[in-house]
Design a protein around this nucleic acid. Structure first.
Length: 274
DNA sequence: AGGGAAACCCGAACGC
DNA sequence: TGCGTTCGGGTTTCCC
């Protein structure tokens, strides 16, 4: 087995092309510590422990915002929500002040789910597709085409921003990425999806991919003490830049609320039709 | 069908 | 200094 680093913080979203942790596949689960029971969405802590011990980790991947850890029999799903991360270290290390679940292996390692806000959830399922099949397409999947995207936009009649955040419509976009993509595409977040022109759909399609790729390249964003990642926050165009100049036209960025979510726009670049 | 509100959390950052 | 209030992130659930 390759040597593991002291502590590896597994990215909030597994990066494309790096969705593996050297050495972890092949290790057998020997012990589970549940520090906060409600972390487990399914099954109960007792059943979780009983069922998972003895299973071997076979593969790790990502689908939408879920980290998917395949075992010899079942599959574990981790959803960090906004404040969680998955940490890999030696069994005897303390991997965080807010570890809610720790899974130890026969190789002396532990996988710890650190989750200060207690919003993150974990599932152990025989068939993970009961959850994952509800997700929309992966925006970076080569199968995901502009044609598909445009058709799916037009057949709904929703405000575009809440639609982008709907994981059943498209998987993986959060508040930061939705705001950034809409600004790149010069689309107002209130715009009805069925009113989007084909060229706007194209710009949005490209904007979504561009902003995701940049986020991945910069290892994500760090926007408060609990949401630590890379340095993408230094390159935001609109998100949390209220009052600062739009990178395109210098108009001060405005903050509005759309679908109960803080939303950042340039009122010059992003015009609501009609 | 779509949208609004509330609930789940808790530490930081504020106001007084 | 301390105490109370507000805020935000993603998702589900309930209600209009």
């Amino acid at each position: 087995m390759p040597e593991l680093p002291e502590v590896e913080i597994i990215a909030r979203s597994l990066q494309e092309g790096t969705n593996e942790f050297p050495g972890l596949p092949g290790q057998m689960i020997t012990e589970v510590e549940v520090f906060w029971g409600r972390t487990l969405e399914h099954p109960s802590p007792r059943r979780f422990k009983k069922r998972i011990v003895g299973q071997v980790i076979t593969n790790i991947r990502r689908r939408g915002k879920f980290i998917v850890i395949e075992l010899s029999v079942d599959t574990m799903l981790f959803h960090p929500r906004m404040s969680g991360d998955l940490r890999l270290g030696r069994s005897d290390q303390e991997l965080g002040k807010h570890v809610r679940l720790a899974i130890h292996t026969d190789a002396g390692y532990q996988l710890a789910f650190n989750n200060p806000r207690k919003f993150g959830r974990v599932w152990l399922l025989e068939n993970p597709n009961t959850v994952l099949d509800k997700l929309g397409p992966e925006p970076l999947d080569p199968e995901f085409s502009l044609e598909t995207f445009y058709k799916s936009l037009v057949q709904r009649k929703r405000q575009i921003k809440p639609l982008l955040l709907d994981q059943g419509f498209i998987a993986g976009l959060g508040n930061i990425y939705a705001d950034e993509a809409l600004h790149l595409a010069k689309i107002h977040p209130f715009t009805r999806s069925n009113n989007l022109l084909e060229v706007q759909a194209r710009d949005l399609f490209n904007g979504i991919q561009a902003v995701l790729l940049e986020g991945i390249r910069r290892n994500g964003a760090s926007i408060d003490w609990v949401y630590q990642g890379g340095d993408f926050q230094n390159y935001f165009r609109v998100y949390q830049r209220t009052g600062e100049p739009c990178p395109e036209c210098n108009t001060p960025i405005a903050r509005i609320v759309v679908g109960q979510r803080g939303t950042h726009i340039c009122s010059t670049c992003q015009i609501l039709p009609g």
